[in-house]
Nucleic acid binder design. Structure first.
Lengths: 109, 109
DNA sequence: AATAACTATCGTAATATTGCGATATACTTA
DNA sequence: TAAGTATATCGCAATATTACGATAGTTATT
């Protein structure tokens, strides 16, 4: 008990859910917004700006990275993160498809 | 500790995160897909189709409902759920804005 | 009124997430 | 090589999520 039964769902359902999950925290939304805003990649700036501990920021970055939403490259002593364009495009497509599949035409409840 | 610090984020960030969170489970994606597919609302059909216990389905429906994504009306002995068009539109707009704010023009990392 | 059918809620166990201090690791510079 | 800077990881505590059996509540049918 207490464990998501991924095996009973389709790959599409699991994929969508995992992408949503990666973005299901305000700190991670904030991080993504910040990365998008300053097109050029940032890193430890986030710690000062978001008001969360360094360990916490690092953990959120790790989650975004393992979901594939961002990528990081070591740049000297710091790490430069940026959006992963490939996954971002995929996200736009799948999400657009999913949300667009509802045509709010017929009233129901 | 162990509690999301919503107060340090913007309303927009918290809103997006909460909507994502509501959809961050394959069962809830499946439920939404099923509701969208059979335009007319369903209910206990989900229990038989998804392979999760009735209590579990009910819990997921409650989460989708409290996030505003779906709405339910009592129809005799059963409950009829359907998409909440207002929130769905809002979701489409906000998400489109958010995802579209990234223009994958300049290479970075 | 009694029974059946459907859904919601309660209680509980297992697992996951969130946040942070402390520490480890990696690179740079003096 | 030593010190400094930046990031990742470990370990832990608090809280949240997931799943389900049991049970309660509600409406329909007999």
């Amino acid at each position: 008990m207490g464990l998501t039964r991924s095996e009973i769902f389709t790959e599409e359902q699991n994929l969508l859910a995992s992408l949503f999950k990666a973005m299901a925290h305000p700190a991670r939304i904030a991080i993504l917004q910040r990365i998008i805003l300053s097109n050029t990649c940032i890193c430890g700036d986030l710690v000062g700006e978001l008001g969360l501990a360094q360990a916490t920021i690092s953990q959120h970055l790790k989650e975004l990275k393992s979901a594939g939403l961002i990528q990081g490259t070591i740049e000297g002593v710091s790490v430069c993160y940026c959006i992963n364009p490939k996954i971002w495009k995929l996200l736009e497509n799948r999400l657009g498809e999913f949300l667009g599949s509802y045509k709010g035409t017929t009233e129901c409840c």
